[in-house]
Amino acid sequence: MRELAASTISDHVAEMCEQANIYLGEDVFSALKDALETEESPTGKEVLKQLIENVEIARDEQIPICQDTGFAVFFVEWGQEVHLTGGSLEEAINAGVKRGYEEGYLRKSIVSDPLYERKNTGDNTPAVIYTDIVPGDKVKISFAPKGGGSENMSAVKMLKPSDGEAGFIDFVVNHVKAAGPNPCPPIVVGVGIGGTFDKVAVQAKKALFRKVGESNPNSKFADLEKRIKDKINDLGVGPQGFGGRNFALAVHIEDYPSHIASMAAAVNINCHACRHLEKII
């Protein structure tokens, strides 16, 4: 049994919070540069130039890419041969978030009570944490700071199996169209299909952790991702919604087996500041 101290988890998490908010991943950065190549609208081009410059300024001067440094979302794959010592996983992650957001001068955007007091917790905790127990003696932590503007533009719909591919495409495209300029396009569209009401939403979130440029391993879904992306870009909404060719940088679909009576679908949108980072400990 491998032993791992809770404080080690906290150290890694604190560092990940700072890094993810300052350095945009190469995958998203090159997608932005590709978008600049294909953009036809002059204002759209100007937006993309600003976004590329923004990423460079953030990196060179250690300024957060976006002021909304997000809800801290984690997917943890915990090897079942690993024994955590000195605290619980939840405490360890939250301690890391607290330190990372404080030391990194990141914005604290979490309020304790969603309806009545809405008082800021002051340290951006608690995080949202999903844990899977997996074989092996490694721990993989994936982190994404999820901005509120794009998160608000999300939806779950329990489609009927008879809605078929066309109904599924319509749901995704119409939803993204209604979101329009709000989620800071160009966007990455996370889509879940299958599973239960709750599972499909988590799948859509998981889809946003995938590297931009990678496709669903099933060729049918990979092809569907491309077709939906083209349909979304044909809306003409463009960067920031000012009109143009690049509304979506990517569409990622995560599928899961379905009940015979259901076809759950979910859309979780991410902005161009599609920040995600993973670490294997």
Binding site: C66, C184, Q240
Partner: peptide
């Protein structure tokens, strides 16, 4: 509109 997400 300013460019959303160009905070830096």
């Amino acid at each position: 509109a300013a460019v959303g997400g160009a905070g830096a």
